[in-house]
Computed example of a mutant assay.
Amino acid sequence: MKNTAIVQTFLGPVIISEQDGFITELFFAEDTQLNAVNRITPLLKEAEKQLLEYLSGIRKTFDLKIAPQGTEFQKTVWSTLHRIPYGETRSYKQVAEIIGRPEASRAVGMANSKNPILILTPCHRILGTDGKLVGYAGGLERKKRLLELEKNYV
């Protein structure tokens, strides 16, 4: 059974879902999604606690079991994102090189855009090759604020 919590943050409401003891989704909610049924579990309480600690600059890493759903390539990209240190960024090209597919910058971008567990899987730390903010499922303003938050607390 999928359980869901809505968490109010300074970036707007966030929906976190868990199933079978794993976080499966974290995304910014649209107004129409705020009617989701809240079924709070101990894991969702812990996820909320850790998310709010992160957003207040207290937490630098997350200690939650996650199970993102995606292709093997997407999972490889998302796994690589977890190795980018707090307060640092990488380009799509750099991630493509890290995973041994230097020609796959666009595919890395597409995998990034499909990340189902925002913030916990830090796709906001990926920039364009020129260092510009590009693409973020939560919107570029939120991406900018997350990067500023990390820069301020590094």
Rank of each mutant, 00 (worst) to 15 (best):
K60H: 13
A107C: 01
R125I: 05
G100K: 14
Y86H: 14
F73P: 02
I99S: 02
V134H: 12
T121F: 10
N115H: 11
R90V: 13
S56W: 02
P122Q: 09
T80Y: 01
R125D: 14
S79E: 14
L55D: 08
K144F: 07
M110P: 00
I84A: 06
E53Q: 14
A111E: 03
V77Q: 08
K114E: 15
H124V: 02
E97K: 01
L51T: 04
N115S: 12
T61S: 11
G109I: 01
E88G: 03
L118F: 07
V134P: 00
K93S: 14
K144Q: 11
T121H: 07
V95Q: 08
T71A: 04
I84P: 03
E72M: 05
F62L: 09
D130M: 09
S91E: 00
Y86V: 11
I99A: 01
K143T: 01
S91D: 02
K93W: 01
K144P: 01
I66W: 14
T76C: 06
I84M: 07
E53P: 00
R90Y: 02
T121Y: 12
R90W: 00
E88K: 13
E53W: 03
T121R: 09
G87V: 09
R106F: 13
T121M: 15
R106V: 09
K93A: 14
A104H: 10
I84D: 07
L81W: 08
H124F: 15
P102V: 07
L127H: 07
K49N: 01
G128Y: 04
G109F: 07
L51H: 04
T80S: 15
V134Y: 12
R101A: 13
K93N: 10
A104L: 00
K93C: 06
L133F: 14
K75W: 00
T129R: 09
T129N: 15
P102T: 08
K93H: 11
E97L: 05
I98Y: 09
L118C: 04
M110R: 14
T121C: 14
E48T: 14
L52R: 13
A107Y: 03
L52T: 08
A137W: 07
D63Y: 12
L52P: 05
G100W: 12
Q69A: 13
L52M: 14
S91G: 07
V95L: 13
P116A: 09
S56N: 15
W78F: 10
Q94C: 05
Y54A: 12
I119V: 15
A104K: 02
T61L: 02
N115I: 11
Q94S: 15
G100F: 12
T80C: 12
E72I: 08
G57S: 03
H82M: 11
S105Y: 02
P122K: 14
I117R: 11
C123R: 07
I58W: 03
A137V: 12
K143P: 02
K75H: 09
Q94R: 11
Q94K: 11
T89N: 13
F62N: 10
E103A: 11
A104S: 12
A104G: 00
E53T: 01
G57T: 01
E48D: 03
K144W: 03
Q94M: 10
R83Y: 11
I99Q: 03
I98L: 07
T76P: 00
H82I: 04
P122G: 15
V77D: 01
W78L: 13
